[in-house]
Design a binder for these strands. Structure first.
Lengths: 221, 221
DNA sequence: CCGTTATTCATACGAACGTATGAGTCAGAA
DNA sequence: TTCTGACTCATACGTTCGTATGAATAACGG
């Protein structure tokens, strides 16, 4: 997490930051290839070639392929976690903020369609993500679960299990992004078209709103 | 789909069906290992060892590892597709049948927790499932989408996009089963306990019912 | 009984993989 | 200028993989 901090005391001094650029190139290439072909499908050779560096670069900068994957995951997940938490801390009723969380997922996945694949591929294969990633996931889970609790308090959300509710909400954008490539094969729904994407966002917002809203007796404001 | 039908005309006659048993042993072992370790993580050697057969058995009976995986997927998916379609054809309003579909997923995943992993691991890794599997998925998708259309007609379901609605519904049990192993790590929710499982079923039914039901003006019967 | 044939088995092959190794390169401190 | 250390690079190592090959085995029809 913090062991790769050069510039120790009075010592070595890196050369211009050449290494940092290689490092970020590897993360970018890894993100692209891991997302497209899966962890095993993306060889170190392919990644280093895509990054325009040498085969040894992964070992040198990350120690192993697995640790590169961890860095890719962390760098990919942290921004969306921040967006979600920002949405959870925004103004309005808890339900309104919850819908903003959904919208945050959607717009983020629009810019980074490979992100759900990146994470879920390992989850689905039964492996355990690195601890740093688990912590990020945990914080997101708690933010959304907290939103449900707040919603019950302010009357904008129907009572229920906070964690399960968080899963129900998150599952919508994540699952949709996961199966998007299949959808084009299975039928006429093409989520790569902006109009369809907007439609799916509106559908999801409506579904989540209806799923969370109280039974219609004390719907506030 | 039907090319593995021996007993051609007047000819060879298999010996007692010894081969069929090996074949099903391989599928069972493949299902276990593919589900636990992912496609790449389950080597042909591990699978044949688990099945108690020889290394060459996969090539002999299926032609390749990939085709074994296809057979595993097909054999795993067909029963749940049938259950879902039976639920879709049952009695009651479309909404009631939709909830029965959700329940069918839940109870089936309870008996076969590795099933979602088996399929989604490849979807998440960006690969395309074999055509037979795609056809099964398509039929399920259409059954549930048809349920939504029926629901709008009989007034039990709010209007909306049929396919997107089908995805929203299916995502619930699938995503829950996918992240179940992570949930135990991330917090106090343990979906392997029967009580929690029942709780999650009730939660999902409530969420889907609320998400689908019309705005409360013409809720029938 | 013999020959055919489905099936099993041991073993080999070639390719691809992740990682290790050691030499080469170059900017900056002394 | 010389030395140092971060970084790059080519190449080698050992392993594991999926698949191919051909011999052994055993049941069945004739």
């Amino acid at each position: 997490m913090s062991q790769n901090r050069r510039r120790r005391s009075h010592a070595p001094r890196p050369r211009a930051d050449v290494g940092e650029e290689t490092r970020s190139d590897l993360i970018a290439a890894g993100r692209r290839l891991f997302g497209q072909r899966g962890y095993d499908g993306a060889s170190v050779r392919a990644i280093t070639h895509e990054a325009g560096t040498n085969l040894g670069a992964v070992t040198y900068h990350f120690g192993s392929k697995r640790e590169l994957y961890g860095a890719v995951l962390e760098q990919g997940l942290r921004p969306i976690a921040e967006r979600v938490q920002a949405a959870a801390r925004s103004e309005g009723t808890a339900l309104e903020r919850m819908l903003r969380v959904v919208e945050a997922y959607f717009t983020h996945f629009e810019a980074h369609p490979d992100l759900p694949h990146l994470l879920m591929q390992e989850v689905a294969a039964g492996k355990r993500p690195p601890p740093v990633v688990l912590e990020i996931l945990k914080s997101v889970k708690e933010a959304i679960a907290g939103l449900q609790v707040e919603g019950v308090a302010d009357g904008s959300v129907r009572p229920g299990h906070p964690v399960l509710t968080a899963l129900s909400v998150v599952s919508q954008p994540v699952y949709l992004a996961l199966v998007a490539p299949l959808l084009r094969t299975l039928g006429p729904v093409d989520l790569s078209q902006p109009a369809t994407r907007e439609l799916s966002l509106q559908h999801t917002l409506a579904f989540v709103r209806a799923g969370l809203a109280p039974a219609r007796s004390d719907s506030p404001r």
